[in-house]
Design a binder for these strands. Structure first.
Lengths: 218, 218
DNA sequence: GAGCGTTACGCTAATCGTAACCATG
DNA sequence: CATGGTTACGATTAGCGTAACGCTC
């Protein structure tokens, strides 16, 4: 039911070289075998993939579709192989972590240092991204762990509470906010704010809270 | 060099059922064959994937890594198969289009109607997303065409100009802006605006232009 | 001894390369 | 007639199931 990898690789080469013969050579098999493998692929899919002519092959519509899938599939397979090579070489693998700005600067460095000390064989790759991007990368399998701000849309992902982040307001001495005995988020909204870029999830979160309070971030 | 799909499928089942025998049965092959296939996989990767015990199998660290890769790989393979089945059935495939709000409401419906009339065998799937999300989906191969606002980060993607969008300012009669003979973007920035959500790319674009003019959106 | 995984041994079936065969510019 | 793809045939080999075996609870 499922097609085999080698044939897909052959197909990709044939499609890109516009030639079965070249593809066969590149795949280190005979032309006859190549022809049959493609034919088998077509029979399996019940569709013609290549338009044959005496001076090469061209993709059909179905071929174009398959080419896209096959290429990303092969790329993924290479990632897998690389990972497994890491394991074979003793490294226990790569842990890809995506963190937002606050985690990156606050808690993460310490935690990562501890983890790295206890697991010297695990290679850590850390990237800083906005929460929304982090979720996308996680869903695409491009990363293993993401640290995002509360309230992010995390469909299909497992979530755990990591740390609590405290936000502070900085104002000039004598500013109206400083006069207050107890400052609530609501009070802050009455003033102009200098904060993060508007794309940051932190800001989205603040904006959502502002809406709840029937005010707006300005 | 590359592992075969069937073995990966077997491995996934073995990992999830914690049993080689069950996995063999589920894969419609004998236990002996299953054992050998896993052994071959391990030999190929030069790593042990499963910890054997008299009452089943458990994943090793390398096995956990492989399981993740194998599962997403198999999912992708199913997508591919589905697509090819579409082609076999005469449908020329699915064109997945991601559009932002303005394209969705302005130009796209007409263009899609025309295309659908001329290509009845192509199934169209349209989704509305913000430009940044659209780019992510395209890069992940989850969509074929995206319509985004100018200035989006489109690394690794081909871009073409689609349509020009005209923005309008709506104000009460007698508003300062209405008095102007000719209104420039710069002039608009001197006033408070009610526009789209701050996450929308359109807003990012406006904000960038505002920065160029040394003003700010408020 | 019941359950589970592994190894040994024939056998079948898939796959290959060589070579002869078509089609087109 | 040179180029590129296809089909035929014999040989190789990779993969299967049956069956015997080893280990642990």
């Amino acid at each position: 039911m499922l097609p085999d990898i080698d044939s897909l690789g052959l197909f990709v080469r044939a499609a890109e070289l516009h030639s079965l013969s070249k593809a066969a050579e590149a795949s280190h098999i005979g032309v006859a075998a190549a022809s049959r493998r493609i034919a088998l692929l077509e029979h399996r899919f019940r569709t013609t993939l290549l338009e044959r002519s005496p001076r090469g092959v061209e993709l059909t519509a179905a071929g174009v579709s398959l080419l896209g899938h096959a290429k990303t599939l092969l790329v993924h397979l290479n990632h897998m192989n690389a990972d497994m090579n890491d394991h074979a070489a003793g490294r226990k693998g790569v842990l890809r972590i995506i963190a937002n700005t606050s985690a990156m600067t606050e808690y993460l460095p310490d935690d990562l240092a501890t983890f790295a000390r206890e697991n010297p064989d695990v290679r850590l790759v850390v990237e800083e991204r906005w929460s929304a991007e982090a979720v996308q990368l996680l869903q695409a399998g491009e990363a293993d762990i993401g640290i995002v701000v509360e309230g992010s849309r995390t469909e299909g992902l497992e979530t755990f509470a990591y740390r609590t982040d405290r936000l502070a307001v900085i104002a000039l001495p004598g500013h109206a906010l400083v006069q207050l005995e107890q400052m609530r988020f609501e009070d802050v909204l009455d003033h102009d704010l200098i904060a993060l870029e508007s794309g940051a999830s932190m800001m989205r979160l603040l904006a959502e809270q502002a809406v709840v309070l029937e005010k707006s971030l300005s």
